[in-house]
Amino acid sequence: MQISGFNNFKYCHHHEFHKPHHTHAKTGGHVEVKKSGTREIKVVRRVLDVNEKMARQNRELFKEKGVFVLNVMSSPGSGKTTLLEKTLDEIMPEIKCAVIVGDICTTNDADRLVKTGAPVVQINTDEFGGDCHLAAHVIEKSAGSLDLDAVDLLIVENIGNLVCPAEFDIGEDARVVVLSVTEGEDKPVKYPLMFRECDAAILNKTDLLPYLDYDRELAVKYIHQVHPDIPVFELSAKTKEGIGPWIDWIKGMMSRKKP
């Protein structure tokens, strides 16, 4: 589906993708009669195994196409979209980029990102009451509408949420969590899984520090308490101050993937 007025802009509605088609062999499994009089059938399966399988397929496809995939996650309002706008500004056209952006509603983020010149796919999840994360099959369908041969770096802007996206592998190469100085310093210890699962953290909106009682050392300490040795980039996406090391990190990660 294409929305007129945006050359690069592909709009996907989540319901088109909602259920991946899959079949499972019914083996019956191991059966045991319990004391309670019930018959126990062993299942032993990961609840999210369908997602995990799809994520592995995505990873293989991205490897084959030589695309590096970066999954960017954060709570709502941390400045992900501004960060991506400025990041694309810095690394394009040297690196060919595309963006998949997930939101519960609206195409506002895609409207902003398409101005960078990168192909943008917007996913809205509101069809199902607003899914709180992007799952692997949604990424698979969205990536299918992009010319992956013409992409080196695919950035996925996940739904703003520090809980659920951490649980869903989408086939990415690296995960980044964005935290901003207008949030509590203790976010990392409140959402440890997210910070454990990420390969880098960004502390955004540092231009606001003079106006806030924010203890950035404490925030960094909490990040490292949950994930020791993780790189933390303190920057202001708005002013681009401190953005250099973040860009270098992306380039470094990309060169590590190249065969």
Partner: peptide, 16 residues
Amino acid sequence: ILSGRELDIDSIEIAE
């Protein structure tokens, strides 16, 4: 991390 990330269905129990 050796454990703590599980989200697994272990079994189902059916009435006799």
